[in-house]
Simulated assay, not measured.
Amino acid sequence: MSIYIAHRLFAAHDRALAAALAERLAAKAGAEHIFLPFCDTDEENLIAEVKGRRLFELDRARLARLDAMIALLHGPSLDDGVCMEIGYAAAGGIPVLLLTTDFQSYSLTEGGDRLDFPDPLIQAVATHVIRVPRPGPPPSSHQQRVTRYGEFLSRNLAQVDATLDAAVEAALALPAPDPRSAPRSKAGTVYVEGSPYTAWGHDRLAHLCLDAGHAVVLPQRFTAANPAGSALDDLLAVCASSRLLADVSGPETPPGTATLIGAALATGVRIGAFHPRPTYTHAPGREPNWRNLMIQYAAHAHLDTPGAVRAWLAR
């Protein structure tokens, strides 16, 4: 079994949590069966002409030959690189275990169905979800010389510790991959995914596609009575389209959009990323990236104006 651990890379506590999970998994399954990005790509010491692209290529090569994925997710603003990796795995029928440290739940309307994640697509593609819903129980007796802060820390660490153990057991019990049959691509069809961070939603991009003579497919999961079921329909619709036009505007690519980008990449769908006002990220020894590098290098085209969209649609 080859297990890929997808996690946010650019904060020490995220890498530490992922490393703790990898260590426990390796003790049960063998280190040769675990892939931990950043650690196993030796990102800090990697030398390449375009380092971000090389990291993308190394991670994608591993994504193409895994048997299971564990993805670590935190809060309502989910890491777009992790979500892209989840979509890639899900499109290939790879079982995905999601571990979240978020004690909140979400719904698309005030009284709607509760979801573990803000976009129903994340929940829909998960084989299993493990949550940290609250701190661990307080100790039965107050320990001497332990402050209330130390006690609170101990409760949270105990809960995380127990959750990591649960994740290891669940990962080892995941089913075998179930490769999906590739849907027949509909020539001239463009799936348009808007951004919740922009006022025009998908309308502006959809009109550009229609004006260029393309058929347009729009997401259904945000308005359907059954968001999770419709989310899977959205995933299949992307994989059956000839192109994905995704608005990745905002502080990060929206989680569902990033998931669809991963699915499109896995199934050979051409990806156009509309991002008119990028903010760049910088890391030591790496070129500036206008989006998370897994999103940037998955996209076949970075489109920053309506004219660029028209030109891409004409190709």
Rank of each mutant, 00 (worst) to 15 (best):
A224W: 14
P139M: 03
P177E: 00
D203S: 14
V129Y: 04
D165W: 07
A167I: 04
A199L: 14
V125Y: 05
G136I: 15
F152G: 02
D211C: 00
E151I: 03
R221D: 03
L157T: 02
D161Y: 02
R145E: 14
D119Q: 03
E169P: 07
I122S: 14
H202Q: 06
P120V: 08
T147N: 09
A187F: 04
V146I: 10
N156E: 13
A206V: 04
L172S: 06
T147H: 08
Y191C: 08
L121Q: 05
I122C: 11
P139N: 03
G150W: 07
R131M: 10
L218A: 10
H142V: 12
A199N: 09
Y197P: 01
D178H: 09
D211M: 03
V190E: 11
A166T: 06
L172R: 11
P196A: 12
F152Y: 05
A158I: 01
Q144N: 15
P183L: 05
G213M: 05
P196E: 13
A182R: 15
R204Q: 15
D119M: 02
Y197I: 05
R221T: 06
S140Q: 15
I130S: 00
P138G: 02
A206P: 02
A176M: 13
A167P: 05
R131C: 04
H214W: 00
P183C: 10
Q123Y: 09
I122G: 08
A166S: 11
V168H: 02
D178A: 14
R148I: 06
A215Y: 04
P133F: 03
H202W: 09
R180K: 05
D161K: 07
D165A: 15
I122N: 10
P138R: 02
D211H: 06
G213S: 01
S140V: 13
V125W: 08
D119A: 07
A187T: 12
V192H: 10
L208N: 05
T163D: 02
P219C: 13
P137Q: 09
V190L: 08
S195M: 06
V217C: 03
P219I: 15
L208V: 06
A167N: 04
L208G: 08
A215T: 11
F152E: 09
H202R: 04
Y197V: 04
T163G: 02
A171T: 12
R131Y: 10
S185N: 04
R204E: 15
A166Y: 01
Q123V: 11
H202K: 02
V146C: 08
A167C: 04
H128C: 05
A212C: 03
P133K: 04
Y191G: 09
G194W: 12
R184F: 01
L164Q: 12
C209Y: 01
A124C: 06
R148D: 09
T127I: 00
P139E: 10
R131K: 13
A173Q: 14
I130V: 12
